[in-house]
Simulated assay, not measured.
Amino acid sequence: MRKNFYFRSFLIAAVIILLSSFYYLPYYVSKPGMAKELEPIIKVEDGFEEKGSFMLTTVRMGRANIYAFVMAKLSKYQELYTVEEIRGENETDEEYNVRQLHLMSSSKLAAIETAYKKAGIPLKYHYNGVYVLNIMEDMPAEGKLRAGDRIFKVDGKEFQSSEEFIGTVSAKQEGEEITLTYERQNQTKETNLTLKTLQETGKPGVGITLVDDKEVEVDPAVNIDSEEIGGPSAGFMFSLEIYNQLIKEDLTRGYRIAGTGTINAEGTVGRIGGIEQKIVAADKADAEIFFAPNENGAEDSNYIDAVATAKDINTDMKIVPINTFDDAVEFLRKLD
C-alpha cells in the first residue's frame, strides 16, 4: 500500500514538473554562457596566425518556465528580467529578433571599420537603403510595414542612407501621401502612407525606427561567421581578432584573452549586459585576461562589476578596464 502511495506521488510530481516546463512566465532568465575562440569564426584572407586566442563571452538567455524561474531564484549567477526589460515597449517577438540580428550586423561592421582603420587599410562603402527595426503604434506604417523590411525608394526615387530617408520624408507636410518601395522576403512591394507628425521630433514621418543597410568592401577580405550569436556585445572582441590577423605582430602573446563590449566606428568600447555571467563563463574556459568596458571610470561600470565577480568566484583571471580599442592594443603590446 505504501509503495503504491509513493509511486503515485512520484508520478504526480513528474507530471507537474513536465507540465511546468511548457508553461512560460512573463520573465526571461539569463545565465553564464560560454567563452568561444574567435579564430575559427573570423577569417581574414591570408591573415596571420596567433599563438594564443581571443575569445568572445556569451550569456544564455531564454523565456523562463516555472522550473527555470525557481532555479534562477536559487542561483547566484542567474538573473531574471521581465519581458518589458528585454523587449522594447510594444515590441513584438519578431521585432525583437530582427533588432538583435541588426545589432549584430552593425557591430560586425563597426569591428571591421575599427580594425582596418587601425591597420591603415582603406574601406569602401555601399548603401542599399534602410531596414525597419520597429513600428510605432497608431502611426501610418502600422499594419503596412514589418520589422525586417528593406526600404530603398521614396516616391520612386532611390536613396541610400537613413539620414537621406529622414531628410526626404521630414521635408514634406503632414497629410501628404508618399509611396515607399521595399523588399520583404526577396519580393519587391509598394505601399502608400499618409504622413503624420511625430511627437518626438515634431516633423512628419511614417512611424518607424530604422538602421542603415550598409556594406563595407575591404582588401584583404574578411568573413565573420556569427550565425549563432546575437546582439552587439561581441563587437569589441571581433575588432581585436580582425586586427590581429591583419598585422604580423601577434597581440595575444600566447595568452587566452576573453572580453566583451560594444564597439563603434570610432573604436569606443561600450557597456553591455550580463557582465557577471560572462566573467563566470570566461573563468570556466581558463581565460587568463578579461577586457571589461570601463565607461570612463563610471562608479557603476561593467569593469567595477567584473572585478567584484572575479573576487567572489576567486579567479586568477586579470580584469582589465577598457575605454577604447586603442587601450586594449596598448595593454597587449606591453605583455611579456
Rank of each mutant, 00 (worst) to 15 (best):
P26A: 00
P26L: 02
P26M: 03
Y28N: 11
S30W: 02
K31F: 01
K31N: 05
K31L: 09
K31Q: 10
K31P: 06
P32Q: 09
G33I: 02
G33E: 11
G33A: 11
G33F: 03
G33S: 10
M34G: 06
M34E: 15
M34P: 01
M34C: 08
M34R: 12
A35Y: 12
A35E: 09
K36C: 06
K36N: 13
E37F: 04
E37K: 15
L38C: 05
E39F: 02
E39C: 03
P40M: 07
P40I: 03
P40C: 11
I42M: 04
I42P: 03
K43Q: 08
V44Y: 09
V44L: 09
E45Y: 09
E45P: 05
G47E: 11
E49V: 12
E50P: 04
G52Y: 01
G52P: 04
G52C: 07
S53M: 12
S53R: 13
S53I: 02
M55G: 05
T57K: 05
T57V: 03
T57C: 05
T58W: 04
V59P: 01
V59E: 09
R60V: 13
R60P: 01
R60N: 14
R60W: 08
M61R: 14
G62S: 14
G62P: 00
R63W: 02
R63C: 07
R63F: 03
R63I: 00
A64H: 06
A64N: 02
A64P: 03
A64T: 01
N65W: 08
N65H: 10
N65L: 02
I66P: 00
A68I: 04
A68G: 04
F69E: 08
F69L: 11
M71H: 05
M71I: 11
A72G: 14
K73L: 15
K73R: 13
L74K: 06
L74P: 02
L74V: 02
Y77G: 10
Y77S: 10
Q78D: 06
E79D: 01
L80H: 00
L80C: 09
L80K: 10
Y81C: 05
T82Q: 08
V83C: 05
E84W: 08
E84G: 08
E85A: 14
E85S: 13
E85M: 10
I86P: 02
I86D: 01
R87T: 00
E89S: 13
